[in-house]
Design a binder for these strands. Structure first.
Lengths: 244, 244
DNA sequence: CGACCTATTGATACGTATCAACCCGAGTGG
DNA sequence: CCACTCGGGTTGATACGTATCAATAGGTCG
């Protein structure tokens, strides 16, 4: 099931080197991190850790997609975090997990045992600085997401999600917004439903409707082409104002 | 409208001294902060800053309640942050606001101009450490909130909100959970609706229903007595597991 | 080929939104 | 001191969007 994933040994060749928690570390700091890291892989569907567990590591996602999920007493599931490569798992200073961490696809993690990582945090201002930056970015993203969950229609939710994946798939500099764009949905319909606070049936129906309306084309189940990203964004319900 | 609020001049007598961003500062660091702080008040309903504005300060809430809000293009409003005393406003390293900041009641802020505060961050490890801690706490809270917005029923949303206010109103140590508890709702019905992703009418109806069911008693509009907090919590939809 | 999993499509139910009327207390002005 | 207005809140009737229940389709693997 899990295809063999390459093992990266040198941080300098790491694909997430410039976006992850180590992004602003200098060569010396990187050396120190390099000494305590280890890689770990999970296959799609596996849970990486469960709510209430003591997780004695923190990690960066090197490849694949993980999700954070919360569940009601009677089993309704809400995704509360979508973690793509370079995103960070775990909370320094606290080992008790607040949510389930799931591998949405095959996932490779660059892990650090909690203790040595926390010690490094104390000695490495760059590291804590970058972690704060990332936490605040996630907080902003979480707030966008709350608007989506609380106030958007099913159609707006789907278009917003596709736009989110577009934005994470293209570097802003190299994106050609006036040409058709193509993305791979990183998660299944069920995971999308859990992300968006919908049922799988509603997700499916809305995707069909967007296809019918010519806003997207679908090849297979996961591959989406957006003929005009502006047309799609006009359906997200978002204020146009370009912030951030 | 805005009653006169006391002006605090010494950090040592500040009511939020031990919970705010300055909580883990020592006397010397506090002195430095004290030198650059200034107080500012807003009256209920005023907006403190709007999305897209450049906010050249950061601040702690000393008294009152503020909210962060996001709005769709056609005016639907979702609250994305509920800021109570000791909570922090603003983002070091970025002046462009991602959301509107509103005074939900009369509010007193302890403000710092952005530049000197950011300089202090660089020289004061305790400060950045505490800020990271607070950002991660808010992230956890935001994720609970996402479960609420995405998957909970109206009744569960209301009971969850009341429980949230209970938890913020009583220090865990001094709370007597087996006795009736009394709180003041810090925000209007409309603000509750925007917090919970509901309409004001639904909020009103659910409160009436909880009253009818004997789970709460209401005096006036804002004062709520909870005869049995466990009964109320049984209605929140939350997994009982005590985490965090 | 059959079993299984994911996704799609259809019919209906239900929860919350919407539209509308009304209530209540506080301010305001005659 | 009463009539009026205004904002916030409650209650009622109905509409509508999404959930639910159910059947079917398509792809993959044994």
């Amino acid at each position: 099931m899990a295809e063999l994933l390459p093992v990266f040994t040198a941080c300098s060749t790491c694909p997430i080197r410039h976006r992850a928690v180590c992004a602003s570390c200098d060569a010396e700091e990187l050396d120190a991190l390099n000494g305590i890291k280890y890689y770990k892989t999970y296959s799609a569907g596996q849970n990486i850790a469960l709510r209430g567990d003591a997780l004695d590591m923190v990690a960066s996602i090197v490849a694949g997609t993980a999700s954070l999920e919360r569940v009601t007493e009677d089993g309704r599931v809400q995704m509360v975090g979508l973690l793509l490569p370079s995103d960070f798992i775990g909370r320094p200073g606290r080992s008790g997990l607040q949510y389930d961490v799931m591998a949405a696809s095959d996932v490779t993690l660059c892990c650090f045992h909690r203790k040595p990582f926390e010690e490094m945090l104390d000695n490495t201002p760059h590291l804590r600085e970058r972690l704060l930056e990332m936490a605040m970015d996630e907080l902003d993203a979480a707030r966008d997401w709350m608007l989506l969950l609380g106030r958007k229609t099913a159609r707006e939710k789907i278009t917003s999600f596709i736009d989110l994946i577009v934005r994470r798939s293209y570097h802003p500099a190299e994106a050609k917004l006036d040409q058709p764009m193509k993305i791979e949905l990183p998660i299944s319909r069920e995971a999308m439903a859990n992300f968006l606070g919908l049922t799988i049936e509603t997700v499916s129906r809305q995707i069909t409707a967007l296809k019918r309306d010519g806003l997207i084309q679908i090849e297979g189940k996961r591959s989406v082409t957006i003929p005009d990203i502006y047309d799609l964004r006009a359906e997200t319900g978002d204020d146009e104002e370009d912030v951030g």
